[in-house]
Nucleic acid binder design. Structure first.
Length: 779
RNA sequence: GCCCGGAUGGCGAAAUUGGUACACGCACAACACUUAAAAUGUUGCGACCGUAAGGUCAUGUGGGUUCGAGUCCCACUCCGGGCACCA
């Protein structure tokens, strides 16, 4: 209605666990269920009146779509961004299947309640960490709600610090044998490191096994830690750990021997999987030191004398680096802690015991799933190619092999012209008892020929995670049926980047970040035209969830699901739409309340009733234009226009109601029509009906131009000034617009109500905000 | 535990940058219409004191900054989202 061409697409992304689990339960093939559900969702969305472009619908489970999802994976492989590594999966020893995190409830298998273990498995990973810095930096160039930017930045989690080497020596031999490397953001606290903690998975435990004197105890602890998820390991308030006896570390700053512990609050995935513990200045280390009675050495003192006295008790770690002075730190004593970070890092480099380092929390993306219902990974493992690669060793760089093949010897990509690699039919959808995908049971599919050397070879049987399809769908919407490439570059240039992307907040760190990564990769390799820019989405907003009555998430098991079909049946689609918009702020969760829906129904009923006056009296029904109503009408045009842009739908509806309360007594046809146009995006069905059938217009209301407000009609000649005395409201006086402070005070002092509290004599000062407020401060 | 949000009448909520707290709607009550009910319309509706005029107190809790705080700062409580294999 404002004259723009708008691409507003809808599609279906149905690979993943829910469809697969349904198939396991019912034996119906996921593709059949997915088709059925898509049909139903489409019918429902159409009945609500969404203005999607139904010619561009895509489905990530279609062969013609996932052909390109597989193509993207091949490109990543080719460019060395995909690699195989051993990654633990959740393993249920009784069911003999791998479990998703969601299927593990409090460390137990959701189906059989036995304890879940970690099992190492070779899986494909994507090097998203290579893009970490760009994913942070480019956030400055997009218009995302602040909350989303913050969450992404924290998730990627850049920290600047230092890598420090600690020598390890066996207690008996006193010989330097090994070393432990730690990453720390606080090298300034090095002198305060009184012990070290390593993750239970740390290689040091294996490497030093022969000299560890309490081997059994350590092993037991390591086993126990295997059963816990990262979340469980870090969430427990009570820290646990075991000292690794028989070896010690040496603090390189002061040469002191310090004990080494293993504790599950240190994770392998972050940093080096080992930390130097500085109990005086880190709360977790502090709690650990208290529990195991370890020395706590204060190396930073509060600068402020008062704070210093308050802090002497050492009941808490002192983490305030901004206001700290170094103590007990040799040549660094007396320095500002903040400044000391730089100095001590330089010193580490000089002494060759450390160096500056940037670390990210972000981990590489595990891209394998041992399931059936996903895109097959289009790679083939060939033993003879592997042997050839190994024999070539140093010559491979100048060879015909891609980076991916060099990185993953023996893995050969399927030629692009053989895509899509379609999912074969299976009879059973459960993963196998080895933890492999059910695809591994289909010999005719697994056994194949190497596309490179024609030797017998085997297909990869893992499939891709659900995210794979949704990483690039915005590109496909621009050109949904292209068989030659992802999407025609000219079409991409026309539509991309996405102007406005709305989605749930729960997608902020995973889907949103993954898709930005994949887009950047495609942009780097030229699969997406350079002109579009390095970010796929210009603007990102998020909506809240509609909860069931009583504030709980709608779910079948709770029996509180509201079916839109029923609401539409009883009240109509427009009432449903407007109720959801009116329910509360767009970005906040809201509970469904069937009672409140009546307000919207009454509102639309009144509109309908009023419109019929124009019909009955054959358009002769006419009332003089009322200046005040006209002013309100133009204020509402402004309000509704602004609110739609900022997604203040609840206040836009409220503004329309306020206008209707005035207008629907006295409106002439012209004003009423303007009101209808304002209402049309909210209630498209009823407004179109009135527009054409009642008012007799030939063209659709949606062909009308969006109304513009007249600024002259909004300006007021008078203003109500709130008069406060000492900040308390004592009177409200109407004054001519633009009254200055002096006159306002004079007028205010004439008011009896004000005279009770203020007079010329006791005024200390006055604060005046033009046309709004006057505050008189008295003694 | 860590990261990000939120808390305002009986209820959903409003309050564009610190400037009239509770707009709009629901529920409730009274009245009108009706034989009656529903629907519709009109009016009232934060708490306390007061016939009223008016006053005092109120935006999760406790402190602070300010002429003035729902809004800013500090500490805390509770609730929601995320924590990498639900998507």
């Amino acid at each position: 209605m404002e004259g723009f061409e708008v691409l507003y697409p809808m599609g279906f992304d149905a690979f993943g666990l829910p469809a697969e689990n349904y198939a396991i339960k019912t034996g119906i093939h996921p593709s059949i269920v997915v088709k059925k559900n898509i049909k139903n969702f489409t019918r429902q969305m159409k009945s609500i009146g969404f203005s999607f472009d139904w010619d561009r619908v895509i489905s990530t489970t279609d062969e013609n779509y996932y052909k390109w999802t597989q193509w993207i994976f091949l490109k990543m492989f080719e460019n060395g961004l995909a690699y195989k590594a051993k990654i633990p999966i959740n393993w249920c020893p009784k069911c003999k299947i791998g479990l998703a995190n969601e299927e593990v409830v409090a460390g137990k298998c959701e189906r059989c309640a036995s304890s879940v273990e970690k099992k190492e498995k070779e899986q494909w990973l994507l090097k998203i960490t290579k893009y970490a810095q760009r994913l942070i930096d480019d956030l400055d160039s997009v218009d995302y709600i602040e909350r989303v930017k913050t969450m992404q930045k924290n998730w990627i989690g850049r920290s600047d610090g230092a890598l420090i080497k600690f020598k390890i020596q066996s207690e008996k031999l006193k010989v330097n044998e090994d070393f432990l490397e730690v990453f720390t953001t606080r090298p300034d606290t090095l002198f305060g490191a009184t012990f070290m903690v390593i993750a239970p998975e740390h290689v040091l435990i294996r490497n030093q096994e022969s000299v560890i004197s309490n081997r059994e105890e350590v092993k037991k602890y390591v086993e126990m830690a295997k059963g816990k998820s990262d979340l469980e390991r870090t969430e427990s308030k009570e820290k646990t750990g075991v000292e690794i006896k028989g070896i010690k570390a040496v603090n390189p700053a002061n040469g002191k021997e310090i004990p080494i512990f293993t504790a599950d609050y240190v994770l392998t995935g972050y940093g080096t999987g080992a930390i130097m513990a500085v109990p005086a200045h880190d709360q977790r280390d502090f709690d650990f030191a208290k529990k195991y009675n370890l020395p706590i050495v204060r190396v930073i003192q509060p600068e402020n004398q008062e704070l210093r006295i308050k802090n002497q008790g050492l009941e808490k770690a002192f983490e305030d680096i901004e206001n700290g002075i170094m103590v007990h730190s040799g040549q660094f004593d007396g320095m500002q802690a903040l400044e000391c970070i730089k100095k001590i890092t330089l010193w580490l480099v000089e002494k060759k015991i450390g160096r500056p380092e940037v670390n990210y929390k972000l981990r590489d993306w595990v891209f394998s799933r041992q399931h059936y219902w996903g895109e097959p990974i289009p790679l083939i493992f060939c033993d003879s190619c592997k042997k050839l690669m190994e024999s070539l060793k140093f010559k491979v760089q100048s060879s015909k092999f891609s980076e991916g093949e060099i990185l993953n010897p023996g893995w050969v990509p399927i030629p692009e012209d053989k895509l899509p690699l379609t999912l074969p039919n299976v009879k059973k959808y459960e993963p196998t008892d080895t933890g492999e995908s059910p695809l591994s049971k289909i010999d005719s599919w697994v056994n194949t020929k190497c596309p490179r050397c024609n030797s017998p070879a085997k297909r990869e049987t893992d499939v891709m995670p659900n995210w794979a399809g949704s990483d690039w769908y915005y590109l496909r919407y621009c050109n949904p049926n292209n068989n030659q490439c992802l999407a025609d570059p000219e079409k991409l240039k026309y539509w991309m980047p996405v102007d406005w992307y709305n989605g749930g907040l729960e997608h902020t760190t995973l889907h949103l970040l993954y898709s930005r990564f994949v887009y950047k990769f495609l942009w780097d390799i030229g699969a997406v035209p350079k002109e579009i820019g390095s970010e796929p989405y210009k603007k990102r907003t998020s909506h809240g969830m509609i909860l069931g009555e009583g504030g709980e998430k709608m779910s079948k098991s709770r029996g509180n699901v509201v079916n839109p079909d029923d609401v539409i049946e009883e009240f109509g689609a427009d009432v449903l739409r407007m109720y959801e918009m009116f329910i509360g702020p767009f970005n906040q969760a809201a509970s469904w309340d069937t009672k409140s829906i009546l307000g919207i129904k009454r509102f639309l009923d009144r509109v309908w009733l009023y419109s019929n006056k124009f019909k009955v009296q054959n358009s002769k029904f006419k009332i003089k234009e009322d200046v005040n109503v006209l002013k309100l009408l133009h204020q509402t045009i402004k309000k509704v226009s602004v609110d739609i842009e900022s997604m203040g739908f609840n206040t836009a509806v409220s503004a329309l109601m306020i206008l209707s309360n005035e207008l629907l007594n006295s409106a002439d046809q012209k004003s009423f029509e303007t009101f209808l146009i304002l209402l049309s995006p909210f209630a498209p069905h009823i407004t179109e009906e009135i527009w054409r059938e009642v008012l007799g217009h030939k063209k659709s209301i949606f062909k009308e131009a969006w109304p513009k407000f007249d600024p002259n009609l909004i300006i007021s000649k008078e203003a109500q000034i709130v008069i406060q005395v000492n900040g308390k409201v004592r009177d409200k006086i109407i004054m001519p617009a633009g009254t200055d402070e002096l006159s306002a005070v004079q007028i205010a002092l004439l008011s009896e109500k004000i005279q009770k509290f203020a007079s010329k004599e006791n005024i200390i000062k006055t604060i005046h905000i033009k046309d709004k407020l006057l505050n008189i401060v008295v003694k």
